[in-house]
Design a protein around this nucleic acid. Structure first.
Lengths: 194, 194
DNA sequence: GTCTATAAAGAGATAGAC
DNA sequence: GTCTATCTCTTTATAGAC
């Protein structure tokens, strides 16, 4: 894959709603080219095919999340406070670019098939959360759970599911909380027991 | 779609590892036919194409989960106890048929594109959990969270993520807990705060 | 280096005999 | 229900203009 110019990258986002709606499989590369306003041959010049295009966009988003999460981690405050900032960042970026977020969450299998994307996913979601869980156990602001991985999975799982249910495939009668990140964290933090 | 004989259905499962590994997109229908030992023409006799085959298998598993979850819900005990039984059932069935579980979790987008599968997913995962959360708030065994949907999302999210991380795409250095369901529920129930 | 046009290859799906 | 042969559509890849 050649280095993709910013203008191409930004145009590609125009094709994302299409991909998110019907899946990459059903999306012809001509549709992508037309919708994005990029000649098909140019796409083949930069990418080796459809998969690589989507992988590039995923990578793009995951890197952005990892970067902002890293910033949120570096702020002042207890581990809990920073954890909340990190999760809020993740949710914000996923919902901000709704179509890409949908495509990503709806296609976790694709990510798990690519080692590079697995790495990016870890940097964006697991690593910051897991580190904060460990820190929190240290500074006493979080309880020390036996397996920090289980904690970060719970958080990541609830984040992506909340996006899935509220943004990607919302039921008709659903009322989305204004402060989704806050309410979600409340549940995860305090648990379900009385 | 014609009614699929049990023998065809069971043979189809042989092709699942293939689909889970490389995705449906990269799986040729000839490969499915060969691996499952079903003539390609017969597949087209019962199904309209690849998508319908996978949808059928998903439906199959989701129905099984919904059925067993419904049984677990009907047992004696507090809401919490039955909730644990339901979640353990879900995890058990997802891991028991590892390849199908992988394909399902890795392809949530496909499910969200099909209203019938969304229904089945709800019956298998959301509905039983959400009902138990409401019941639990009633009998005092669970705290009354503002939005029960958030609770069921948290549970479902952590369930699928734990499957994803431990079963579908396990890291090399990962130690999978023996009692995954139990430890996971401990986190979700008691929360992350001290 | 980038684009237009088009040819070649490969997969999904179908038709009709058995 | 199953088989062989075939048709069609998509992707891939290239040749050549700019």
């Amino acid at each position: 894959m050649r280095k993709v110019p910013a203008q191409i990258a930004s145009k590609l986002h125009l094709a994302l709603p299409l991909i998110a709606e019907q899946g990459l499989e059903q999306t012809k590369i001509d549709e992508i080219a037309d919708t994005a306003g990029i000649p098909k041959a140019t796409l083949y010049y930069y990418f080796s095919g459809k998969e690589e295009i989507l992988a590039f966009l995923f990578e793009d988003m995951l890197t952005a999340i990892a970067d902002e999460a890293s910033i949120a981690m570096g702020t002042e405050g207890t581990a809990v406070e920073r954890l909340e900032a990190v999760v809020a960042t993740q949710i914000r970026l996923l919902t901000q670019n709704r179509a890409l977020g949908s495509a990503l969450i709806g296609d976790l299998g694709r990510i798990s098939r690519s080692p590079a994307l697995v790495d990016s996913l870890q940097s964006a979601f697991y690593t910051p959360v897991e580190n904060l869980l460990i820190e929190g156990a240290g500074d006493g602001s979080l309880r020390a759970i036996a397996n920090p991985l289980l904690g970060s999975m719970t958080i990541f799982g609830s984040v992506i599911m909340s996006i899935l249910v509220t943004v990607i495939a919302p039921a008709d009668d659903l009322d989305v909380p204004n402060d989704l990140a806050g309410e979600l964290l409340d549940v995860v933090m305090r648990g379900l027991l009385p």
